[in-house]
Design a protein around this nucleic acid. Structure first.
Lengths: 186, 186
DNA sequence: GTCTATAAGACGATAGAC
DNA sequence: GTCTATCGTCTTATAGAC
């Protein structure tokens, strides 16, 4: 792995653990085993490096989500597969947590990949809900966009509950609550 | 308002805006119009002051939630009142956002009021769901704890979606999705 | 109680040697 | 490309005068 890659990977880890505000160039360099000059040679500064890290993390998240959402099974089953996919719950969402970082939200460049990822996820889930409606799997009145937003919010909020209590249990409880309301009653 | 109170209020604002990691004693002092010595006379340090601020914010949040949840109306109506109560959506949840702060989660003293508040909220909502079940308002199979966790997660996750997109709309969409699934079909 | 002075180290970056 | 040196500012306090 190149020095440039190690810098990006270290930044990804630190952004996940400590957020943007809590991540210093010095900490990044130490974790990457690189010096000051090395970092500033490859990247203009902290925001530039963070953008590269966030972009890569966002791509990975989409891939992981699509592996669950694009699988086999009914609409409900694919949604359930996404909601219950393996997660490091107590670490939180590497993308969603960035929305609580004031300096990320204030910078359109940094916020864009976050917004695009969550927006894509909502759209993808809405498609699947629509498929379920077409198959008569869900009650006719169900709104795909609202339901998709609810599902993404459940996951993001589940992380909050889990981290607040120091246990993944609350995440699973919220997810079960969502699946119970969505489950076909045939 | 005493200097001590101004320090607590300033800390509350900054914790909400910038989180714990992003809030410096200097910024607190400037906003409170107090000097270094004044702050360290009243509080042992940043964690001590943050604890006072978080405790007060947690109390206020419970009060605001209870005003919606303890009102008149059916279980569904009180839940709807809570979910749709007036919020500064783009500012996020002053309590929930702290779970994304590594230094808060790592400190049991600081995490405790956050956990207690969200725990209380889940319990309170579960009570109301149970009332709705007793009244035949909700389908008999509905699990109060799961549903309560789902509702709190919807709100917390709704903040994430809203801040990611820079608009409160996504919050409202997720909330409508939750209410649609919960709405009595009589 | 509140103020100013002081301090060791971190922050985020630039300069220039190699 | 990578390194060390340097920079001005901020951080989180402590000390001691008023």
């Amino acid at each position: 792995m190149s020095t440039q890659d190690r810098l990006i990977e270290s930044t990804r880890e630190l952004l996940w653990e400590r957020g943007y505000v809590g991540t210093s160039p010095k900490a990044i360099q130490e974790r990457a085993g690189a010096g000051q000059g090395s970092m500033y040679h490859h990247f203009k500064g902290k925001p530039d490096l963070a953008l590269a890290a966030i972009t890569r993390t966002a791509e990975e998240l989409r891939g992981a989500a699509e592996r669950a959402l694009g699988g086999a099974g009914s609409a409900y089953e694919r949604i359930a597969a996404y909601l219950t996919r393996e997660r490091d719950v107590l670490r939180g969402c590497p993308v969603g947590r960035l929305t609580m970082d004031p300096d990320v939200v204030a910078d359109d460049r940094l916020r864009a990949p976050v917004d695009e990822t969550l927006g894509w996820l909502r759209g993808r889930l809405a498609e699947i809900v629509q498929e379920g409606l077409d198959q008569g799997e869900f009650p006719p009145g169900l709104d795909p966009d609202e339901t998709a937003a609810l599902l993404v919010a459940t996951v993001q909020g589940g992380y909050v509950l889990a981290r607040s209590s120091g246990s993944p249990e609350a995440f699973d409880t919220a997810v079960r609550g969502a699946l119970a309301l969505l489950r076909p009653h045939t």
